[in-house]
Computed example of a mutant assay.
Amino acid sequence: MSNVKLIIEERAADIGNFMVGRLLPFREKRAVGPFVFIDHMGPTYLSDIENFDVAPHPHIGLSTLTYLFRGRIMHRDSLGTEMVIEPGAVNWMTAGKGIVHSERTPQFLRGFEKMLHGLQIWVALPKELEEMEPNFTHIEEKDIPQWEQDGLSFKLIAGEAFGRKSAVPVYSPLYLIEIKSTTPQKVKIGDDLFGESALYILEGSIKSDDVVFDPKQILIAKDTKLCEFEIGENSSIYIFGGESFPEERFIYWNFVSSSKERIEKAKTDWEKQKFPKVPGETEFVPLPSPAKF
């Protein structure tokens, strides 16, 4: 019997002046462990007159993880941070009680043709940390655990697995693992996983119980301990998950919380522009029209 409980197909979503592939949340699966949101950005080619520009917008109750395959993004936030995220590095921003940030094409790439491709991920905070002070951490690619094993390339982007620990300062038990292949290989890693687990196919394919799965799909596992499959040649996959929280998480726009009342307060605060400002920026993304949780 297959260990695949649910298959989630990537769906197109508009984030302003840029189209992405939305993976989480999904109507039948709102979260995988603490992971509540995943967008696949690109791959998109931008002309010399096109740029990636997401004006200042707020977050509460979560950490964001930006991981690029190609291209660069300038991150600015209300803490005064200015950081260019490059392929293979990690931007980890914890919103806590509230943070505002913008994401744009860096000035040195404007006026040139460029490409953008990566993942935008939200990780919910434990209830007792939802109102923590915001912070920002940048981890260079060289500081992320990576190794070769059984003909495969591994990278532990965040969390703990395989007796290793990423430098990304997470706040609950989780993992985000990159596996790349050049030739078909058997993969068995169930003993290293815990909680809920899912697998995202970026490139190539995997085969599980004689069924072949293709790119732009998330496969939700029934049992992490049965995580065995064959990865195809020239494939890139991402396994993520961890311990779920006992309380439900609500999402409205960029706000994540265990409390609907807290989200209502965040909405009001943003409408009244009570959130902290991003230094040097005057634009902002307005609150979207009402939507149900």
Score class of each variant (00 low, 15 high):
residue 2 S to G: 12
residue 3 N to R: 05
residue 11 R to S: 02
residue 17 N to M: 15
residue 17 N to V: 15
residue 20 V to H: 04
residue 35 F to G: 05
residue 35 F to V: 09
residue 43 P to M: 10
residue 44 T to V: 13
residue 45 Y to V: 15
residue 47 S to W: 04
residue 47 S to Y: 04
residue 50 E to H: 07
residue 55 A to V: 09
residue 60 I to E: 00
residue 64 T to Y: 00
residue 64 T to C: 07
residue 68 L to M: 05
residue 70 R to W: 07
residue 71 G to V: 01
residue 73 I to H: 01
residue 74 M to C: 06
residue 76 R to G: 06
residue 78 S to H: 04
residue 81 T to H: 07
residue 90 V to G: 02
residue 94 T to A: 07
residue 94 T to C: 09
residue 101 H to M: 09
residue 103 E to D: 10
residue 103 E to I: 05
residue 104 R to C: 14
residue 105 T to K: 00
residue 114 K to D: 02
residue 115 M to Q: 13
residue 118 G to N: 04
residue 118 G to D: 03
residue 119 L to I: 02
residue 122 W to R: 03
residue 124 A to V: 08
residue 138 H to G: 13
residue 146 Q to C: 12
residue 148 E to W: 07
residue 150 D to Y: 11
residue 150 D to V: 12
residue 151 G to R: 05
residue 155 K to A: 08
residue 157 I to T: 05
residue 160 E to I: 15
residue 163 G to L: 08
residue 168 V to D: 00
residue 169 P to A: 06
residue 174 L to I: 13
residue 177 I to R: 02
residue 178 E to Q: 06
residue 178 E to T: 08
residue 184 P to Q: 13
residue 187 V to K: 01
residue 189 I to V: 13
residue 196 E to P: 10
residue 196 E to G: 04
residue 202 L to S: 06
residue 206 I to G: 03
residue 210 D to A: 14
residue 223 D to M: 13
residue 225 K to N: 12
residue 229 F to L: 10
residue 230 E to M: 11
residue 232 G to P: 00
residue 237 I to S: 03
residue 243 E to V: 14
residue 248 E to W: 03
residue 250 F to A: 05
residue 251 I to A: 07
residue 251 I to C: 07
residue 256 V to P: 01
residue 260 K to I: 14
residue 261 E to L: 14
residue 267 K to L: 11
residue 278 V to M: 04
residue 278 V to K: 00
residue 279 P to T: 05
residue 285 V to A: 11
residue 285 V to W: 15
residue 286 P to L: 08
residue 288 P to T: 10
residue 291 A to W: 02
residue 291 A to Q: 13
residue 293 F to V: 15
